[in-house]
Design a protein around this nucleic acid. Structure first.
Length: 559
RNA sequence: GGCCCCAUAGUCAAGCGGCUAAGACGUCGCCCUCUCACGGCGAAGGCGUGGGUUCGAUUCCCGCUGGGGUCACCA
């Protein structure tokens, strides 16, 4: 077989050589140790929560080492492509603060375009590049055209793949299939010419070494040494429309774009031998591989399952809707990614997560279960650490889309709203009232007259005369200039005058000796002013509301 | 079924041959406290299993079991 002739026959339009491409895309000039990583999603829908794992790892590794993090769109399957998915993907990641140094970006027209000298970064428009290498493989006798469709192949082998799996009579049928595929290798130049002349399409298959008994070894950055059978399957390189499969595109792109570390989900592990073989055939330097465990969920039977598209929390955009701020989600993922992250966070509450020394060695090789409890805890802490200004801004962004009423109130008087958010915030032990932004409104609605309602009731058996007396006395002695201690001393005095214990210890020691305690008096006031039994520090609340509104509520409470 | 990955409490996890087997979330109890939210203290709960190796295994090796992934002209 004259491989050169075959190559020309198959790819008559390809005039460039791999050497030309190498010259066009010279190696990157980066400092020693700099890592080049990428996120390479296929635009088939929303960004999956699990996608955040490789994204964060890639981003940290690249930027921590002074390297490059780029975005490549793997749109080689037109049938699965969802219009606008690439665009929304970029927008979503942006909201999570993920910055790409090069690759696919959003143009001024809102469409995907790109930036960087190793492009284009959309695989669908890199066809001619793949063909250069495809031609080389054919010329080297390492790839061949196959004119049979998958169905025809199965017919030849008298098998049905789906049935094989079900019947589990895999081995024999798989062997038959393989035989049928192998038969395709035995073509003659005349046959190829005839097929091409007839206008038949072909797929380009790799000519696999064929010794599945031998092992190939690779050192995974997380799992260590992995030993697998050498690839012996003539897998497809180029589909019949000339577009490459993932495997081929991965090899060519990551080589040309200078990727040093391939970070991807563990579902790729089984196809690693294919990639090792391809890099070898192509004489490409092998990147380092890291296969990340998948995030799981629990199904009805209590088994772990991959967090799939339809599951709650699978869509990264869901979190914004549910009221989680992007930082919290990122922080949660980081705690799963690096086991010492939480420890670091506790020691460095104020630093941005980008200051955390991300370490591959601290990554776990087993898949973990998604845990809303933990996310909630992380989120609560993230929100509690924010400044009043920041949480005001974040809440507004959320409320604009999800709670117009709240949004209107917050933005009507930003300073007032911020002073509400400032309650118990900023110290070493900040209040932790919010897990999600949806918690904000029920927490602070009573600060707004038109949202204020009396939600809770006085305890059973409360003496209304005492309530009225307490409120009257409170109004009589109220002085806005009082500090919190002076204020509370007056409340205590009122309690005492009504036969309620001013000292809680005394009350607890002998409850029967009093009608109640200062806690009860406070509860009366709190209920009147906030409409509920539980609220932040009453003194502060009253000062934010102001004397007039405080009194108005005290008055209307009595009816 | 073949191949591959994984295996410490309900969850996430330290551990890397000798420990009363860290810590976090969740759960429960107590304390603090004018309520709440914090904060503090404490409790319950764990090395899947059988063989080796070793003076000694959670730790190293093998089998088993369990869970997961994968086996496309999808990525």
């Amino acid at each position: 077989m004259d491989y050169q002739k075959l190559a020309d026959l198959l790819f008559p339009d390809v005039t460039e050589t791999p050497a030309d491409l190498e010259a066009r895309f010279p190696a990157r000039q980066l400092p020693e140790g700099a890592k080049v990583t990428r996120f390479a999603p296929s635009p088939t829908g929303f960004v999956h929560f699990g996608g955040l794992f490789p994204v964060l790892v890639g981003e940290r590794l690249a930027h921590q080492s002074g390297g490059v993090f780029y975005l490549r769109i793997e749109d080689t399957d037109a049938r699965r492509e969802v219009p606008g998915a690439a665009e929304s993907l970029i927008t979503t990641l942006e909201k999570y603060g993920i910055h790409f140094d090069e690759g696919a970006i959003l143009g001024s027209d809102g469409k995907v375009t790109d930036t960087g000298i190793y492009g284009p970064y959309k695989q669908s428009v890199r066809g001619s590049i793949y063909h250069v290498y495809a031609k080389q493989l054919v010329r080297d006798g390492l790839a061949y055209p196959c004119f049979s469709t998958d169905e025809e192949l199965e017919e030849l082998a008298n098998t049905d793949k789906k049935a094989e799996i079900k019947n589990m009579d895999w081995e024999n049928q798989a062997a038959a299939r393989k035989q049928a595929m192998l038969a395709q290798r035995d073509f003659t130049m005349e046959q190829v010419e005839a097929e091409l002349a007839a206008g038949h399409a072909f797929v380009l298959r790799i000519l696999a070494d064929g010794d599945g008994e031998k092992k190939v070894v690779n050192t995974d950055l997380i799992r260590g040494k992995i030993e697998m059978p050498v690839n012996d399957e003539d897998f497809v390189l180029l589909k019949s429309d000339g577009i490459p499969t993932y495997h081929f595109a991965h090899a060519v792109d990551d080589h040309l774009m200078g990727t040093t570390h391939v970070i991807r989900g563990e579902e790729w592990l089984p196809s690693l031998p294919k990639h090792l073989q391809l890099f070898n055939y192509l004489h490409f330097r092998l990147p380092k591989y890291m296969h990340i465990s998948q995030i799981m969920r629990l199904d009805e039977n209590g088994n772990k399952k991959k967090l799939s598209k339809r599951d709650m929390g699978a869509n990264l955009n869901d979190y914004a809707r549910m009221g989680y701020c992007a930082d919290a989600v990122v922080e949660y993922v980081l705690t799963l990614l690096n086991s010492n992250y939480e420890e670091w966070r506790t020691a460095n509450p104020a630093l941005p997560y980008t200051d955390f020394p991300f370490n591959i060695k601290k990554m776990s090789s087993s898949g973990c279960l998604f845990d809303f409890n933990k996310l909630n805890d992380v989120s609560k802490n993230v929100l509690s650490r924010m400044s009043a200004d920041r949480i005001y801004d974040e809440t507004c962004v959320w409320a604009e889309d999800n709670d117009p009423e709240l949004y209107a109130h917050l933005t009507a008087d930003p300073d007032y709203a911020k002073s509400i958010f400032a309650i118990g915030r900023g110290g070493k032990k900040p209040r932790k009232d919010f897990t999600v932004f949806g918690d904000v409104k029920p927490y602070l609605d009573f600060f707004y007259d038109d949202l204020f309602t009396v939600k809770d009731a006085l305890p059973e058996g409360t003496d209304m005369a005492d309530v009225a007396a307490a409120i009257a006395a409170f109004k009589d002695t109220y002085n806005e200039a009082d500090d919190t201690n002076a204020w509370f001393d007056k409340v205590k005095a009122i309690a005492e005058s009504l036969g309620y214990a001013a000292d809680m210890k005394a009350y607890k020691a002998d409850p029967a000796a009093f009608k109640g305690s200062v806690a009860d008096i406070s509860a009366f006031l709190r209920l009147a002013v906030t409409g509920r039994q539980n609220a932040p520090d009453l003194y502060t609340v009253m000062h934010l509301l102001g004397r007039e509104r405080t009194f108005a509520r005290l008055d209307s409470f009595l009816g």
